[in-house]
Design a protein around this nucleic acid. Structure first.
Length: 481
RNA sequence: GCCCCCGUCGUCUAGCGGCCUAGGACACUGCCCUCUCAAGGCGGAGAUCGUGGGUUCGAAACCCAUCGGGGGUACCA
């Protein structure tokens, strides 16, 4: 079985589209079939080379590998549609010669006027097939006069067409609902409908899994396949992804492109997992690895109804995946974010890396997205700038001065500098002063980490070292008097 | 307008005629744990399965209608 993903890279790859690519990939891997990547770059006005390159990068980032396609080739290439225009045109002309299509001399303006006219009179706005009535001599005359013409596919006027969609089920469309549609523009270039069909046929695609905005194209495409003497593929149309307002997910809802999620501190395996669960699920688990998904995924159980994108659930899931990372992976993962915040160099020095690996286990369970690591890591790389609100709320308490003084003395004379000894020393003070743990320790968070939220403070002190810790306490104390 | 598709807790889903007084997850919330924040553990609230008719001994599941939503109706993809 052969599946394909066909992105049209005009900007950044949209998560909704990527989800359908994921479905294709999963189908192919599930049955041990072939996954093909084909770039639909026919729309020269919108396509950019930059978008194309970043699309490939995004696909690889989220873990999609293709068996045939750009950069790796394959027996059915080329895999960029723009390089196949000749093939499409030939197919279109063949259809014309066979009599399955005909020349249309109506101009775009005429068509437009008639459409508006029909609409205002409440009639069906479609093409009326008038050029199909042209006689041989009329056509010859038009050609003689150098009139521009397009090629239109002739759709049967009677009967209907039924097909079985793997997701949607049985769909029936009356032929009368489909107009004779253009397959070749007046400049000879192919239109989308022709292009996909020729490519799917040539590449021997057996299953077309795509967004349901293409559902109404199916009858046209089946007709084209048949006219071309090819077996139509099996279709599966998955619904779109919606935003919280039940409208198709778009920019105004927040991040929508793969690049934005990557730059937002998300892990590819988490996004992968989440996207597949949008419109599909199992009774048992929600956290499913790539291998689990390959084993379990079943396109026929994908919902035919649209799913809303839930950013909060994605965040939770990302946190789950972060917690599954080992220290080494966490360290590698957060380094770019620390670099971006200018806490470490690019690349980080050995010394910085050592520090990162020390704080990584402290950070792991506290963040949902990698970029949040910056807050927890900052005090380990920079002088502390105490948050104003934290200072006002915590350091103004009457016991703080004495607390800091006692701590300075106890920690100053500490023989062994590790988290448990630090804790022991500070707990002794807490008990002596008869304070609740929280009240006793909070000032140290503020003094040492600059915030009421941070890595566990005894560990932080241990990592920062005795001198730095005492210095920071001294600075905080100086702010009190 | 016409055509096609869709409709289970706020959200993602399980469900494929009796196991459903509808299960799980996110979010929300109570308690526990606790040096902050998290994480974790144990509970709670939340869906008469869009609505109205049928079919059936029995329906969330099948049929019809209705309402609501989405898509298409291009010399866009």
């Amino acid at each position: 079985m052969r599946f394909r993903a066909a992105p049209a890279p005009s900007g950044e790859l949209h998560v909704g589209n990527v989800r359908t690519f994921l479905f294709n990939w999963l189908c192919a891997r599930h049955v041990g079939g072939v996954f093909i990547l084909r770039i639909e770059d026919t729309d020269r006005a919108r396509f950019t080379e930059e978008a194309y390159l970043s699309a490939l990068e995004d696909l690889r980032w989220i873990g999609l590998d293709w068996d045939e396609g750009p950069e790796i080739g394959g027996t059915f290439g080329p895999y960029r549609q723009s390089e196949r225009a000749e093939m499409h045109r030939n197919a279109g002309m063949r259809l014309l010669e066979m009599g399955a299509a005909y020349r249309c001399f109506c101009t775009a303006v005429e068509l437009d006027e008639r459409r508006k006219q029909a609409m205002s009179e409440g009639r069906k706005p479609g093409y009326d097939s008038r050029c199909d009535q042209l006689t041989e001599s009329q056509i010859a005359a038009n050609m003689q006069n150098d009139l521009q013409w397009t090629v239109r596919f002739r759709v049967p006027k009677q009967g209907s067409l039924t097909f079985d969609d793997l997701v949607v089920g049985s769909v029936t469309v009356d032929h009368s609902q489909i107009d004779d549609f253009v397959i070749l523009r007046s400049d000879g270039s192919p239109l989308y409908q022709l292009g996909v069909v020729v490519d799917d046929a040539e590449m021997q695609i057996t299953h077309v899994v795509r967004g349901d905005d293409h559902l109404s194209n199916v009858p046209k495409q089946i007709l084209l396949h048949q006219a071309l003497g090819a077996e139509p593929p099996i279709f599966a149309h998955v619904p779109q992804v919606f935003g919280p307002d039940r409208k198709p997910l778009s920019k105004r809802h927040g991040s929508t492109s793969i690049g934005e999620f990557r730059n937002g501190g998300y892990l590819p395996e988490a996004l992968f997992n989440y996207l597949v669960l949008l419109g599909w699920g199992t009774a048992a688990d929600t956290i499913l690895t790539r291998a689990d998904l390959v084993r379990l995924f079943d396109i026929e159980h994908v919902h035919a109804s649209p799913a809303m994108f839930d950013f909060k659930k994605l965040d939770w899931m990302n946190g789950e995946y972060i917690r599954m990372l080992d220290d080494e992976e966490i360290s590698r993962g957060i380094e770019p974010w620390l670099a971006r915040a200018k806490l470490v160099g690019v690349p980080a020095t050995e010394e910085q890396r050592e520090m990162i690996s020390k704080i990584a286990p402290l950070i792991r369970s506290r963040i949902k997205k990698l970029d949040e690591s910056v807050h927890y890591a900052r005090p380990f790389f920079e002088e502390v700038a105490i948050e104003q609100v934290a200072f006002e709320k915590v350091m103004r308490e009457p016991h703080v001065l004495e607390l800091l003084d006692r701590a300075t003395e106890a920690l100053g004379s500490a023989e062994i500098w590790d988290a448990s000894h630090i804790e022991e020393a500070l707990r002794a003070i807490q008990t002596a002063m008869d304070l609740k743990p929280k009240t006793a320790f909070m000032p140290f968070y503020v003094a040492v980490e600059g915030s009421t939220v941070g890595a566990p403070v005894f560990d932080a002190m241990a990592i920062l070292g005795k001198q730095t810790t005492l210095d920071r306490i001294a600075i905080a104390r100086s702010l009190l008097v």
